[in-house]
Design a protein around this nucleic acid. Structure first.
Lengths: 109, 109
DNA sequence: TTCACCTGTAATATATTTATTACAGGTGAA
DNA sequence: TTCACCTGTAATAAATATATTACAGGTGAA
């Protein structure tokens, strides 16, 4: 969730979406970014559960994909973070086994 | 600030630092990451104002760099984000001028 | 048929972040 | 002097994130 919020475009998208539904193309114009780029950002936001989308057929038959924000609330401070870390898994680059050998004991320069 | 919090190692570092001061080497051992990597993460946290450091001389003359968390508090929800966006600047890749020409008007396939 | 909208995605280039390796230098104690 | 700690950083590799370009296909109206 924090990773999803760690980008100015995505923050702006949430701000634009606040309180209203907008379809992708319109959102791209308002955010002043290209649709492909917007899709990428929306995907990240949607994966984090911060926005939802619904494809609808307008009366004239045109397909419109409407997005809206999820009413989330997150309080961040050292305490809440310490709590959250208990549920945190940090992936390792490479090895699958929880190997603790971190190269300690002596400099051996 | 959100960018600084958008990484599991840095989140963990804040958790480890909560309520106590620890010097770099000790922190590296507890977080189970290398010192060079830790320095990088600490730098990002410090730049965001989430932690502070103080280099001290222990009684035995050894230099120790102690870190501690800043007592921050951030409330995130669609409303607060919409507020924050008013103060947000999105950098452009390339061009310096605020150019709005986003290639609109007609498909011209 | 062409225009002006709408929906999407694959491939690619670029930029940034994350992580490692190899250094350089300090102290006190055995 | 060597060991076991401490401080840091530069250069590089590897992994991700960000952004662009080029597609492909749909609708209704002129």
């Amino acid at each position: 969730m924090l990773e999803a919020l760690a980008n100015p475009h995505r923050i702006q998208i949430i701000a634009l979406l606040k309180g209203r539904r907008i379809h992708v193309s319109q959102l791209a114009r308002e955010a002043k970014i290209s649709r492909p780029l917007l899709y990428m950002h929306l995907k990240r936001l949607e994966t984090a559960g911060l926005v939802t989308s619904k494809l609808e057929l307008a009366e004239d038959g045109k397909a419109m994909n409407y997005y809206e924000v999820t009413p989330f609330a997150l309080h961040l401070n050292p305490e809440s973070i310490a709590e959250a870390v208990k549920t945190l898994t940090i992936k390792k680059t490479g090895s699958t086994t929880p190997d603790d050998t971190i190269n300690e004991k002596g400099d051996n320069k």
